[in-house]
Design a protein around this nucleic acid. Sequence first.
DNA 1: GCATGCTCTAAGCGCTTGCTCACTGTCGGG
DNA 2: CCCGACAGTGAGCAAGCGCTTAGAGCATGC
Lengths: 207, 207
Amino acid sequence: MSAAEEMTGEDTPWAEVTPDAARRLLVAAVEAFAERGYQATTTRDIAGRAGMSPAALYIHYKTKEELLHRISRIGHDKALEILEAAANGPGTAAERLADAVRSFVRWHAGRRTTARVVQYELDALSAEHRAEIVELRRKSDAAVRRIINEGVAAGEFDVPDVPGTTLAVLSLCIDVARWFSTEGRRTPDEVGALYADLVLRMVSARK
Amino acid sequence: MSAAEEMTGEDTPWAEVTPDAARRLLVAAVEAFAERGYQATTTRDIAGRAGMSPAALYIHYKTKEELLHRISRIGHDKALEILEAAANGPGTAAERLADAVRSFVRWHAGRRTTARVVQYELDALSAEHRAEIVELRRKSDAAVRRIINEGVAAGEFDVPDVPGTTLAVLSLCIDVARWFSTEGRRTPDEVGALYADLVLRMVSARK
DNA sequence: GCATGCTCTAAGCGCTTGCTCACTGTCGGG
DNA sequence: CCCGACAGTGAGCAAGCGCTTAGAGCATGC
């Protein structure tokens, strides 16, 4: 197991959401938002998937947007945790960058339903909630940029445009949530390995 | 001007849509869909932006979905045209791959409003319309894959996984439509140049 | 053994949605 | 000078939306 994953804790995805009914509603919302998009999802659909009446939703969440915010917040915390674990891990910059990309991509592919909501429904958040999430994304960007900067400083990488390359690396990983399908040919592990290799090429990591 | 651009014809974006009122509605729909998403956009909003009453929309388009389909179709035709022009252009595989990425990225950044609708609202299409669009995307994938295959055959590139790398290259370009902003620091030309360089690194193009 | 507090439901309110329809204004051809 | 054709409008329909409310069911504390 990679350094990044050792530190991400247990893998039961929504264990921190309690009570049980609130978690069932949240899981139902993740599935519905991922399938149809936030705007096209009705509160009746979410409640139905959780086996409850439409009104039950409002006992646990004030609005439909609060559900999205909770999902987005937990997902972004997890994404940041993965990237910072890799950035702070042992090994050379190349090893840490590969670890970051591998585990970040694996999360986007393996938990694609969640990742899709987290990465593509930001616009539906309220201004305050969006600002909070954008701050988390800034930290994710900083974690990756730090690895690349350290690789350049150590002479491991050749990168003319560090902010631009950081942006491209994150963009590449995030877009996995758009196209990945569990019915496709590749497993999350395979995509992670492929992408780690491609990113090392992007920074011209010496062998 | 690159080979890819020489062949893309005139740049007035929606000139082929007639009559004038139909074009104004379509342009209004592109803006609204890009801003709020298809589902969150109302027919009243589209008609309002075009300076018309809600009912006027239905003289030119049968449904709201037909508007999206028309936009998606024209946009995908354009995207395919750009990639095939580069693939069929002169020069080495490296030059053609750089040309493809440069002009494809430039389109996504420069016409970001359109690109956002084209790339991120596929799910809102009807099954038949989506199938038609997916076929166009398959052809885009084939055009890029052909350049990479030719580069490998000519000994210009070192690519262990051609389909996977093709997917990653297209994914990287497409995701530009998600993050690019006209208020940002980079121009479409700059992003195109940066990405062309990164992609040549991904295929280990010899200098 | 009854009051309290909490989860959940049935019903439904006020509003917005995609879309329709009866009608108006305008304009070229006989 | 009227005609049919047609782009465009104002009003509005049926359906569905997010969310609320009154009250049922059921544990727990005393």
